[in-house]
Design a protein around this nucleic acid. Structure first.
Length: 564
DNA sequence: ATAGGGTTAG
């Protein structure tokens, strides 16, 4: 019986088909192992099999078609094997595709099949497998089988190089590309620019870009991305504004470049510009909106954040996990933990990121107990925490004095969730112990660390010494730090001078301050922002630049009197 | 006998 005709017949008569090896989305078939080998009359013609494979059937049906091909001894028909490989790759069964590839009939599979296999591993970020295939392909030449890599092969291989940790393989492949004369090809060139962009080698990215005979929006966007990744935002902008055509991704690249380089004001300016731009008929996509919300969060720009939220709602933009995470984070960091909770509570099945931003939000509002409640709900719902979640939870415990809970989470993170404590976790834990007054225990933890303690850890420990006025331990730590970083970051000097100040050793303070002034190590001074009526006001330590600084100081005095 | 495969942001 023909495969397609029974479907029609079946619909009319509602009788189960007699042939059990066929393809239909309306019926499920018994597993292949239960099949008897069907007699010759039930066979599906090759043409039909090929047509069926063309539809990229789901797994169960694909297996049956595959069985039919084997039974009818079509397994050396290249076109059918090709289609099978395509189908297996379509349902992401790379191993089955690889098996077919290995048993490929002819002296070698055609280049197309090599390419789809390499692409599959490239997509899975499994670059070692795609390299292994590529090497085999190059070696065929020695066996006098001439299947040569083409434009497609090189685009996938170069993309695999971009997934590697080092650029070495990429450079070698680049040489092969040049030798094949394909460097100026649009697709190969684009993937080379992207590769150099990933490795932040902007000079080489530009060289490839410059040599290309034809460029499209991908070439330009990848180049901008390279500059942005490398922190060269000036060049990134220059290239961005030279672009003949910009799409939503181009805007996302420049916006996330500003965001990644801490230029939050520029992120919002860019968003505004995007709305005003007439030539690019683009709307902000999810990436742009997420970056903009995170910029608002970092600036404390509640009104702008609110505006973006309204924009999302009015334009029916899907509140994806990324968007809702960014909204929770923004409202929490802008002081509206109530709205953050509302948004969180409306999410039907929150994921790790949603939970994490809610927990961290509650933690910086000092709502440690609530944060732990949310954390427990997360565990109840079988959502596994990640490293960032644990940081939030530990911070929550630290600011609410929940020493026991925090310690138990820190000490069990590895065996419960397979998360190895990182330096940040030690920082939180030391802070937790230190704030609660367990100074000796905190120092013990620092000494037992398998990672070299950084400035954050020492700061946590020293500020604990300051809170609990433990001059003896503080001095000991200062000596220890001096031994460690003779040429440490400028932050440690500020830290030291603050501690000396709190210990009342003013001679040491002025000595340190002088040394710092001479070396001009004032680059990363703390800074605060607040948004009032849509205007962001910025303050630094001892700042006198604000136009209303006198009124601010008056108010501060007033508060000071009330509080003391 | 034929078609079938492509690069960018978070």
């Amino acid at each position: 019986m023909r495969l397609l005709s029974w479907r029609k017949a079946n619909r009319l008569t509602c009788v189960k088909p007699k042939c059990r090896i066929c393809y239909s989305s309306t019926f499920t078939f018994p597993a292949i192992s239960q099949h008897q080998i069907p007699s010759q009359n039930f066979h599906t013609p090759r043409k039909e099999l090929s047509k069926l494979l063309h539809k990229r059937p789901p797994k169960s049906q694909l297996k049956q078609i595959h069985a039919q091909i084997l039974i009818q001894q079509h397994s050396s028909t290249a076109s059918l094997v090709n289609s099978l490989i395509h189908c297996y790759l379509h349902i992401k069964e790379v191993t089955s595709a690889r098996l077919l590839f290995l048993q490929y009939p002819l002296p070698s599979p055609p280049i197309l099949i090599w390419n789809v296999m390499i692409r599959a591993y490239c997509k899975l970020q499994n670059s070692s497998e795609s390299f292994s295939l590529f090497r085999h392909l190059l070696n065929l030449d020695h066996l006098t089988i001439r299947v040569l890599p083409d434009v497609y092969t090189f685009t996938f291989i170069v993309t695999s190089c971009a997934h590697q940790r080092s650029v070495v393989q990429g450079r070698i492949v680049h040489v092969l590309v040049v030798r094949s004369g394909l460097e100026s090809n649009l697709f190969v060139g684009n993937s080379l620019i992207n590769m150099y962009a990933v490795f932040k080698i902007t000079d080489d990215a530009y060289k490839v870009f410059d040599r290309m005979s034809e460029r499209d929006v991908f070439s330009w966007t990848s180049l901008v991305c390279g500059y942005a990744n490398n922190g060269e935002m000036y060049q990134a902008c220059e290239v961005f504004y030279k672009m003949p055509v910009r799409n939503d991704v181009s805007w996302a690249v420049i916006v996330s470049g500003f965001s990644g380089n801490g230029k939050y004001m520029e992120v919002l300016l860019c968003l505004n510009e995007m709305f005003c731009s007439i030539e690019d008929k683009v709307r902000p996509n999810e990436a742009v909106l997420v970056c903009a919300l995170s910029a608002c969060a970092n600036l404390g720009a509640l009104e702008q954040g609110n505006w973006i939220h309204t924009y999302i709602k009015r334009n029916g933009i899907h509140e994806s996990s990324n968007i809702s995470t960014a909204l929770i984070d923004m409202y929490a960091k802008c002081g509206r933990i109530d709205i953050a909770r509302l948004i969180f509570n409306r999410i039907p099945r929150p994921d790790v990121h949603n939970f994490t931003s809610m927990i961290s939000g509650l933690s910086y509002h000092g709502l440690g107990e609530h944060a732990l409640t949310v954390f427990n709900r997360m565990l109840d719902e079988n959502v596994n925490p990640n490293e960032v979640t644990i940081i939030g939870v530990l911070n929550a415990c630290s600011h609410s004095g929940l020493v026991e809970e925090g310690s138990s989470i820190f000490n069990n993170m590895e065996n419960l969730w397979g998360l190895e404590p990182q330096i940040e976790h030690y920082g939180c834990y030391v802070d937790l112990l230190g704030r609660a007054g367990y100074l000796e225990k905190a120092l013990e933890v620092v000494k037992s660390m398998h990672i070299k303690p950084d400035i954050v850890i020492w700061r946590a420990l020293l500020s604990a010494c300051r809170i609990h006025r433990n001059i003896f331990l503080g001095n000991g730590i200062i000596d220890f730090i001096k031994q460690l970083n003779s040429d440490g970051p400028s932050g440690s000097e500020v830290l030291l001078s603050n501690l000396y100040a709190s210990l009342g050793n003013w001679e040491k303070v002025s000595e340190l301050r002088k040394a710092m002034g001479q070396r001009k190590t004032q680059s990363d001074i703390g800074c605060s922002w607040i948004e009032v009526n849509g205007v962001v006001h910025e303050f630094r330590v001892a700042d006198k630049l604000h136009p209303q600084i006198l009124e601010v100081l008056d108010k501060l005095n007033e508060l000071w009197i009330v509080l003391s």
